[in-house]
Computed example of a mutant assay.
Amino acid sequence: MQQLGVKSVNVLVNNAGISNPYMQSDSLAERAALWQGYIATNLTAPFLLEAVLPLMVQGEGSIIHVSSTRALQSERHSEGYAAAKAGLLGLTHAQAASLAPKHIRVNAVLPGWIDTSGTPEDITQEQHEWQWTGSVGSPADIAELVLFLADPAKSGFITGQHFVADGGVTKRMTYPE
């Protein structure tokens, strides 16, 4: 653990992963390879981050997994991404249970559409209005939620939970016209 150059860790945010959710291929072998990539990167790697546990501060330690609303709803050809992000929800509550004796909290954030494009002008007014909040999310929206969950003074009684930040989209009930 000396490789990290720190003596303690208060917060671990797992935000790395494969972000393209689509596995479009007619080849089962290609789809299986993509599946393995999603599971290895978006689910197994967050589990392996437990390597920092010996450095986590008991009573103040917080692990925050960044999942996705695709853990709760899907589009075609997104099986690997959806399964890995849903797996993070199971990992979240299982780690919360396992780490409870050490008073290390574990939670998950499920972002919806967050504009990380760098070209917000490409998002149409109709796309903004699809969100109940009237706009597509920004990285700052997710960062504020992560900061809240990282702060034991504000969220010390919260563990094993997942928080959807998606402008209300997952609660929409839409029928064909």
Rank of each mutant, 00 (worst) to 15 (best):
G87Y: 01
I142T: 01
P111A: 01
F47W: 12
A143E: 06
A140W: 11
V136C: 06
I114Q: 01
S138W: 02
E177S: 13
V6T: 02
I64D: 04
E50I: 11
L147N: 13
E50R: 14
G156Y: 04
G59C: 00
H103V: 10
Y22F: 11
V13C: 01
H103Q: 15
S67N: 05
D122G: 13
A29S: 10
I18L: 11
Q73W: 03
V52N: 06
W113G: 05
A165T: 11
N20W: 08
T174C: 15
Q127K: 12
V66H: 09
T116M: 07
F163K: 06
L55E: 03
S68F: 06
F157C: 07
G90Q: 07
W130D: 13
A71L: 01
T170D: 04
Q95K: 14
H93V: 13
T174A: 15
T119M: 08
L53R: 10
A84T: 01
A84F: 03
K102D: 12
S27N: 06
Q131F: 12
A153C: 13
Q95C: 12
R105M: 07
S62C: 09
V9Y: 02
S74I: 14
I18C: 05
F47D: 08
R70I: 09
S135C: 12
L149S: 04
V136L: 02
A71Q: 02
P21L: 07
T116W: 05
S74G: 11
F47T: 08
K102M: 13
I123F: 07
L48D: 12
A153H: 13
V57S: 09
S27P: 04
E144M: 09
M23Q: 11
E30I: 00
Q3R: 11
A82Y: 07
G37C: 02
P111F: 01
L145D: 07
M1S: 10
S117T: 00
Q24T: 12
T133A: 14
L110N: 07
A100V: 03
S138L: 10
I142G: 00
A33Y: 00
S98W: 15
I104K: 08
A84Y: 02
S25F: 00
V6N: 02
L91C: 02
G118S: 00
L48C: 11
S138E: 09
L4V: 03
G118W: 00
S155A: 10
T174S: 15
I114E: 00
A94V: 13
A96W: 05
D122C: 13
